[in-house]
Amino acid sequence: MPADLPRRLERLHGLGLPAGALPFLQVLQRKAIVIVDAVAPGEAAGARQAFARDVALLALAGARPVVVHGGPLPFPADARLPGCLATNDMRAMLAGINRELVQLIGRYGPRAMSLSGQEADKLAHAPPAGEEPDGLLGACLDRGMLPVLMPLATDTAGKCRLVSPLQLGSQLARRLPAEAMVVMGDPAAVSELARLTGADGREALERWLAHHPRAAAAGLARALLGALGRGVQTVLLIDAARPDALIAELLAEESTGAVFCRRSAAQLLAASAAYLLEGGTPRDRRKPAAHP
């Protein structure tokens, strides 16, 4: 644990840091967390500011958040890359949201930086000589930068296209690699899928999707399974409409959403045993909370 962490926490309680957050922050120190806003951002300035404050709080407390937003565009949750061509109006709108989030986060202290999906992809893929394998994006996180990504990328023909925020987020989470990917979803879809969480949540999600392929939450379920299939170890699904959901899920004992792990229950038990025997840090952030 960093020697100055308790002192830093005292200064952060005014930003909404929950009591008892220290054990969770110890696990998240210097760990990348990819946060994907899979729904349109709130219209009220207060909602956007609250989101920026929570992301800044994570950064100030020692985590390394990466934000991927979709803006108000109608992205199918399970859209494949690349998506439709991005018009000038679309690019301008997404760039405006990026600038606003960068400015709002910066008011609390962290140095946020605006990126497109293509720029982030290059940063994650092209480490210079002597850099760590996670590339320049990881180096930016090491230097205290907080990337805010808009879902745009260039196809092989050089044309700018919209991409799925969830797929972009899962690719970045795998490449960094991130401790977890947090998906801020529609309240109705989160409520439907949250009951599937648990040590066997991935298998439960697959079974649910097989029986409900056309349900309103089916697209989100496919996207979550796609992220786990691409190598993301832990996906946290939270209600985007709840103002404190991000901090409550990451820094509090009681889970407010759903936790889905790439590894099976048997693998998680083996990892827990190794943690107890060797004193290491388990790769999954914490035990999934039980839901009725």
Rank of each mutant, 00 (worst) to 15 (best):
A3C: 06
R8C: 03
R8E: 11
G16Y: 12
A19K: 15
V27F: 03
L28A: 06
K31T: 01
I33E: 00
V34R: 02
R48E: 08
R48L: 09
Q49H: 13
A50W: 04
L57S: 05
H69R: 13
G71N: 04
F75N: 01
F75C: 05
P76L: 06
A77H: 12
P82M: 11
A86H: 00
T87W: 01
D89T: 10
M90A: 02
A92H: 05
R99T: 14
V102Q: 11
R111P: 00
R111F: 09
S116P: 04
Q118P: 00
Q118E: 15
E119L: 09
A126C: 13
P128H: 14
G130Y: 01
A139Y: 12
R143G: 15
G144L: 09
V148W: 08
P151N: 10
G158W: 06
K159T: 05
C160D: 05
R161M: 06
L166P: 03
R175T: 09
A178W: 07
M184T: 06
D186E: 15
A188E: 15
S191R: 15
L193F: 11
R195Q: 14
R195W: 07
L196F: 00
G201R: 11
R202Q: 14
R202V: 01
W208H: 03
L209H: 09
A210W: 02
P213N: 08
R214Q: 11
A216F: 06
L224E: 00
A227R: 08
V235D: 03
D239P: 09
R242V: 07
I247D: 02
A248V: 02
E249N: 11
L251V: 09
S255H: 09
A271D: 15
S272G: 11
E278G: 14
R286M: 06
K287E: 08
K287A: 15
P292D: 13
P292M: 11
